[in-house]
């Protein structure tokens, strides 16, 4: 056998091997790429813009500043379903001295359970990991595992109606970032 023949055979073998590997990757790559695109689809959706939602009347909030819980209802798009007027969350509203409204999202900024106002302790409390938050400003208590205070929401009062700009935020971090 001539030397050039064996080199030719080597080259032929290499090309076969390389070709098989490339073809194999390409074959599997097509479904994998299509699959990955669908798996990552949730990243496509931009964060929703918060909108003001009419929650209640100013008169319904006790002047003594006791917080009241209200569910927030809005049209909700959940993948293929559109739910009209669905509960999308809840807020605590509190009437302050000058008839402005303080609003907190009930979602605990620690890890996302729902906080509850405690009448006896006069604070907000999360039953999951015992985070407590001050009534006045929602600041997390000492020894409270939450990294930030309760998430306050923008409010406005127009013609006796209380509007809340409802939004959820990422939990577990010190920064208040819309989710």
């Amino acid at each position: 056998m001539k030397k050039s023949d064996s080199a030719k055979d080597d080259r032929r073998e290499f090309l076969e091997k390389a070709g098989s590997i490339c073809a194999g990757c390409a074959m599997l790559g097509v479904p994998a790429a299509a699959g990955i695109a669908v798996v990552l689809d949730p990243l496509r959706l931009p964060p929703k813009d918060a909108e003001f939602i009419d929650v209640t009347t100013l008169d319904s909030l006790p002047p003594d500043g006791t917080p009241q819980k209200y569910v927030i209802k809005a049209d909700k798009q959940d993948a293929w379903s559109r739910f009209p007027d669905r509960v999308i969350g809840a807020v605590y509203l509190r009437r302050l001295k000058n008839d402005t409204i303080q609003a907190f999202n009930v979602v605990c900024p620690h890890l996302g359970c729902a906080i509850e106002y405690r009448d006896v302790e006069k604070d907000y409390f999360c039953p999951c990991h015992n985070s407590d938050f001050a009534l006045e400003d929602g600041a997390q208590g000492r020894g409270s595992p939450s990294a930030r205070p309760l998430d306050s929401l923008e409010t406005k009062v127009e013609e006796g109606q209380v509007w809340v700009k409802f939004q959820n935020f990422q939990t577990g971090i010190a920064e208040k970032k819309p989710a």
Partner: peptide, 24 residues
């Protein structure tokens, strides 16, 4: 929500697991 605590990519990881910004 614990997945969301991961630095930098936390939010994205969480979104991919949850399948969107909200549970559904």
């Amino acid at each position: 929500n614990l997945a969301g605590v991961v630095p930098v990519f936390g939010e994205h990881i969480q979104r991919v697991i949850v399948g969107g910004p909200d549970y559904g």
